[in-house]
Simulated scan of single mutants.
Amino acid sequence: MSLGTIDRTPPPFFRQGPSALTKLVLCSALAVFLMAADTRFKLTRPLRAALATALLPVQQALKWPVRLADEAGGYLQGLDAARSAENAARVQLARQAERVARGDQLAQENARLRALLELRPALAVPSVSAEVLYEAADPYSRKLFIDRGERHGVTLGAPVVNEAGVLGQVTAVYPLSALVTLLTDRDAAIPVLNERTQQRSAAFGGAEGGGALELRFVAANADVKAGDRLLTSGIDGVYPPGLTVGTVTRVDRRADAGFARILLAPAAGIDGVRHLLVLQPTAQQMPPRPEPAPEPAKADKSAKGAGKAAAKSGAASATAAASAAPASAAGSRP
């Protein structure tokens, strides 16, 4: 067999066609053309929209298993959370019912004791609800403006509270608004009573940069501990007794100082407060004070003056009688 008759063409498997460089150039040019056409002429937008519309049912169908699994897991978790919340609510309801029962019993016992001791009933404190308008412009003070004023029954010196405790006191009253000075202000002060020891003291604002209160003039060996709750004493004629003021957070006792440094955390949320109550000062609800009795020295002086006046009038009457006697005697002679 001659060599000229042999087929020298490679089989189809080994045929390479165009070179790799040619294919790279063609593909790069096609990619650049498609990007330019899509950006400039929006040629592929209809094709993309049609493809997205055609694939949307497939995408929704593929999402259903994942969505069902997520919803089933969320349902089971929500069911467990609801059961836990229900159990916690039942426990809290039982505790509140017990507390309410004890409160009613204590209220009845208090009424009986007051009737037994012939004490007058506790004062009912009228209140006015208000909303915070804005804070004072002074950055070195802690004051708020509220939307209730003199026309709404707000008086100067009225205490301001919220659901957590005492907030402050009204220090300026306008016809439709009022200025409230918070307890943490550097010029604020309030008499307090230690709930555990029944010891009275005074709390002042401005401690720790204006975010806390401080008990001043308390002896270094006083029975005060961290965690003690302080209430209003009610002896100042402004705040009703029993309102929560704050909790003792730190007690510093120094051997070289006669007083302890005691810091308090205010019970009411000073920052972020929105709604509050303005109470009527207790001094306006109490009966008028009796007039003071005259001093003994003044009474003695008045008695002495009355005695001198009586003596002078007696001497004058005796002189007149003595002068009238000779005249009558002279008239009786023959």
Rank of each mutant, 00 (worst) to 15 (best):
A299P: 08
L264W: 00
R274A: 09
S302N: 15
A255D: 10
A226F: 06
A219Q: 03
M286C: 08
T244G: 04
D300K: 01
G227L: 10
A310M: 12
A297R: 04
D228V: 03
S302C: 08
A310W: 07
G272W: 04
G246F: 07
R254M: 07
P292S: 04
K301H: 11
D256Q: 07
K312M: 13
A316V: 10
A265M: 00
T244W: 01
A226R: 15
G305N: 07
A299N: 11
Q284T: 11
D271V: 11
V224R: 05
R254C: 02
V248G: 10
L277N: 10
P294V: 08
N221Q: 13
V273E: 03
V238D: 01
A309M: 14
A257V: 01
T282N: 01
D256H: 10
P290R: 11
L264E: 06
S302L: 15
T244Q: 06
T244I: 09
K301A: 15
A267Y: 02
P287I: 02
D236Y: 01
D271I: 05
S302K: 12
Q280K: 11
G234F: 08
L243K: 00
K308S: 14
G272H: 08
T249N: 04
R254Y: 13
V224F: 10
A260K: 12
T244F: 06
V238N: 01
P241K: 01
V251N: 06
A226V: 15
A315Y: 14
Q280C: 06
V218S: 04
A315N: 13
A293C: 02
K304Q: 14
L230Q: 07
A306V: 03
D252T: 13
D300A: 10
P292A: 09
P266Y: 14
A310P: 06
D300F: 03
A257F: 09
R289Q: 08
R274L: 06
T249A: 09
L230D: 08
K301C: 05
A220R: 09
P266F: 13
L276V: 06
A293M: 03
L243C: 10
I270C: 02
T232E: 02
L276E: 00
T232V: 05
T247Q: 09
V273W: 01
Q280T: 15
A297T: 11
V224I: 15
L276P: 00
A219P: 01
A268H: 12
G237T: 05
L243N: 04
G307L: 12
I262V: 15
A315H: 14
E295H: 03
A255W: 04
K304T: 06
